[in-house]
Amino acid sequence: MKQVMTWLVVAVIAGSLLLCGAGLEFGVPAYHDMDDYMIAHGQEETGGNNIVTDVVFDYRGFDTLGEATVLFTAVLGIGLVLRTLAKEDEEYEYE
């Protein structure tokens, strides 16, 4: 029963993915007005030749700020978790 439920859930997910992807056509993006604007005006507005870097650091700067914060927080969490383990290790070695 559990197996049947698992595969049913997987089939529903795969079907919905297929439904979402059915309308897409490779090579012809549906909405591209914003990207056309960035390609046309990116050089004069930000001064960089690499439009992807212009988008990352200028047009979508808040996005990058959040991303840097997520990375910083993850490193903080890893440091906290693994420092507990390292302390246990020291007691383990002294026993």
Binding site: T46, G47, G48, N49, T53, D54, F57, D58, T64, A68, L71, F72, A74, V75, I78, G79
Partner: peptide
Amino acid sequence: TGGVIPIMNIAVGLEVLGAMSVI
């Protein structure tokens, strides 16, 4: 060229370098 983009590149490069090495 590029205004603040090279400065932010250097800042983010420093951050990712530190983060990966610490991990």
